[in-house]
Simulated assay, not measured.
Amino acid sequence: MAITRFQNLHHQSSVMIGALAMADLSMGVAYTPVKLFRTHVPYLFRLEMPCMIAMYIGHFASLAAIIFISLLSLKRFYAIQFPFHYQAHATVKVAVIVNVAVFVFIASALVPLVAGAAMWYDGVSCYAPTLYPSLYTRFIVAVAAIPLFLGFVGFIRVCVAEFRFRKQVFDQSVTSLKKQESIRSKLIITVYLVSLCFWVPHMLYYLYDTVSKADRNVYLFRIVSLVDLRSSAVNCFLYAWKNSKFKAAYIELLRLKPSTEVIRPSTIDTVSLSHSL
């Protein structure tokens, strides 16, 4: 809501954050209810179709959250490593196209979950590593792990750039544009590091069960599921903590007090948006 409503958030970085917010929202409105149903109405998921639907929803929400947090890190790496190319080509329109393409890719990659890939029989556990062929579940792990690894490489590069900026912070020649870029870098560093800590335990557990073909440990599975939900739950608060524009937008949306900062458009962002349109 903040990104669509306020002009000074009309920026390619904000569009990428908006896509991650959509993925986080799917974790709350789709993934979480399915988890609750599986916990409290387990007999329903002994049927094939409810199980297949639950597999698709759970994997789609999880992969979207992991991939988009990785893309945020890679986008910041791109902006730092190739600043001139980034300024020339990274527009709102390009960001929208990339986000839509990623959503379509995830939806397509998970079609086998509901298209007959399951080795279904009466009494089988509704759990992907035991329900699907190892080759396919390893493919799902790769779809999440490869962007996460690339995002980690980008994360290291962003950390190095931010450290160098900190050494120059007392230099009067540091421009306001560089300071704005530093704010975006700090946001990505914080969000990516927190998400990495939350998601890696579940990915490792999923990979272990994929290789061993072991059935899930119910209590351990619930713990790692609750941990990865934390990532989506805290992201919006991290934006407000590390970015004053998001903080001001939230205050305005919640009607806590009017904010001149969020209403006043940023010259750079406005120019960027007009060129992209």
Score class of each variant (00 low, 15 high):
residue 120 W to T: 02
residue 120 W to N: 02
residue 120 W to H: 09
residue 122 D to S: 15
residue 123 G to D: 02
residue 123 G to N: 02
residue 123 G to E: 04
residue 124 V to D: 06
residue 124 V to F: 03
residue 124 V to M: 10
residue 124 V to K: 09
residue 125 S to D: 15
residue 125 S to W: 00
residue 125 S to T: 07
residue 125 S to Y: 00
residue 126 C to F: 04
residue 128 A to H: 01
residue 128 A to K: 00
residue 130 T to E: 01
residue 132 Y to H: 08
residue 133 P to K: 15
residue 134 S to H: 10
residue 135 L to R: 12
residue 135 L to Q: 05
residue 135 L to I: 04
residue 136 Y to S: 13
residue 136 Y to W: 13
residue 137 T to Q: 11
residue 139 F to N: 00
residue 142 A to G: 15
residue 142 A to W: 11
residue 144 A to I: 01
residue 145 A to R: 01
residue 146 I to Y: 03
residue 147 P to K: 08
residue 148 L to W: 03
residue 148 L to A: 14
residue 149 F to E: 08
residue 149 F to H: 10
residue 149 F to L: 11
residue 150 L to N: 05
residue 151 G to P: 14
residue 151 G to R: 09
residue 151 G to Q: 10
residue 153 V to R: 06
residue 153 V to Y: 08
residue 154 G to N: 11
residue 156 I to E: 04
residue 157 R to F: 15
residue 159 C to Q: 12
residue 160 V to L: 11
residue 160 V to R: 15
residue 161 A to V: 05
residue 161 A to H: 09
residue 161 A to F: 10
residue 161 A to Q: 07
residue 161 A to K: 07
residue 161 A to W: 09
residue 161 A to T: 08
residue 162 E to G: 02
residue 163 F to L: 11
residue 163 F to Y: 13
residue 164 R to L: 15
residue 164 R to Q: 15
residue 165 F to R: 14
residue 166 R to C: 13
residue 167 K to H: 06
residue 169 V to Y: 13
residue 170 F to L: 12
residue 170 F to A: 09
residue 171 D to G: 07
residue 172 Q to I: 14
residue 173 S to A: 03
residue 174 V to R: 15
residue 174 V to L: 10
residue 175 T to N: 01
residue 175 T to F: 01
residue 176 S to H: 13
residue 176 S to T: 12
residue 176 S to G: 14
residue 177 L to Q: 12
residue 178 K to P: 00
residue 180 Q to W: 08
residue 181 E to V: 06
residue 182 S to F: 12
residue 183 I to M: 13
residue 184 R to G: 07
residue 185 S to M: 09
residue 186 K to E: 01
residue 187 L to M: 05
residue 188 I to S: 03
residue 189 I to P: 01
residue 189 I to A: 03
residue 190 T to I: 11
residue 190 T to D: 03
residue 192 Y to I: 12
residue 193 L to T: 12
residue 193 L to N: 03
residue 194 V to L: 09
residue 194 V to T: 14
residue 195 S to E: 11
residue 195 S to L: 07
residue 195 S to Y: 13
residue 195 S to F: 08
residue 196 L to A: 04
residue 196 L to R: 00
residue 197 C to P: 00
residue 198 F to I: 03
residue 198 F to G: 06
residue 200 V to Y: 03
residue 200 V to L: 13
residue 201 P to Y: 06
residue 201 P to W: 04
residue 201 P to Q: 07
residue 202 H to V: 05
residue 202 H to Y: 04
residue 203 M to R: 10
residue 204 L to I: 12
residue 204 L to S: 07
residue 204 L to F: 12
residue 204 L to M: 14
residue 204 L to D: 04
residue 205 Y to T: 04
residue 205 Y to E: 02
residue 207 L to V: 06
residue 208 Y to H: 14
residue 208 Y to K: 12
residue 210 T to E: 06
residue 211 V to S: 08
residue 212 S to Q: 15
residue 212 S to P: 01
residue 214 A to H: 14
residue 216 R to Y: 10
residue 216 R to G: 04
residue 218 V to N: 07
residue 218 V to G: 02
